[in-house]
Design a protein around this nucleic acid. Structure first.
Lengths: 99, 99
DNA sequence: AACAGTACCTTGTGTTGCAAGGTACTGTTT
DNA sequence: AAACAGTACCTTGCAACACAAGGTACTGTT
């Protein structure tokens, strides 16, 4: 059921946080009760990066290996707005059907 | 994005209409602005039938070939309630993240 | 030196959705 | 009667997505 919605959530988190690294994203989503695992997240982030929607920079951490901090590109922000609009439409349509 | 949500919608339509045939379902969903095509719907209905959630009966039509009218089984009604609850939870979680 | 913790990543599998094809029944037109 | 249009059913092959289960590598602590 959640398929495809993860992309929306991940872009949403990066937008709200300004920047985020993968393990961070997993934690934030867990708090919102959407479980996402590494095997799902990493390929998704790579895909979004490849599509020009995200960029990243390495940042040293003082509690382990360096982190890949992702941020939205201009194109990514634009795409996120569209995706968010799609979500609201879908959500509304589903409500009509199942209410 | 819509992945997995079609199942919810289809069960919802059959529940609301009491019974429905595939071409019917496509039309109803189109009105709610969710496009679903035959290549998606038929396998989905077969899967739900196989899983014991739906049953069907053939009904003669006076405007073409006979129609397969689907209805929910007891198990199907139960499953639909659970799926609907999952949808509301998901919807709520997504709102938290992207609002 | 060994371990625990954190962080990154890949491979292989099952599910889902869809485009593009196909069959068959009925009523209407030629 | 043959051809057509309309309705309805269904299958095949492909691509995208999510995930389980593995793996690598860096840092600080025991």
């Amino acid at each position: 059921m959640r398929k495809g919605i993860l992309e929306l959530c991940i872009l949403g988190i990066i937008e709200k946080e300004k920047e985020a690294y993968p393990s961070d994203i997993i934690q934030i989503m867990k708090k919102a009760e959407i479980i996402v695992v590494e095997g799902t997240l990493y390929p998704l982030l790579s895909r979004l990066k490849k599509g020009g929607l995200l960029q990243y920079k390495w940042v040293e951490s003082n509690s382990g290996p360096p982190r890949k901090y992702y941020t939205l590109t201009g194109e990514g922000s634009q795409y996120y707005l569209e995706l968010k609009a799609s979500w609201f439409n879908l959500s509304e349509s589903v409500s009509k059907i199942i209410k």
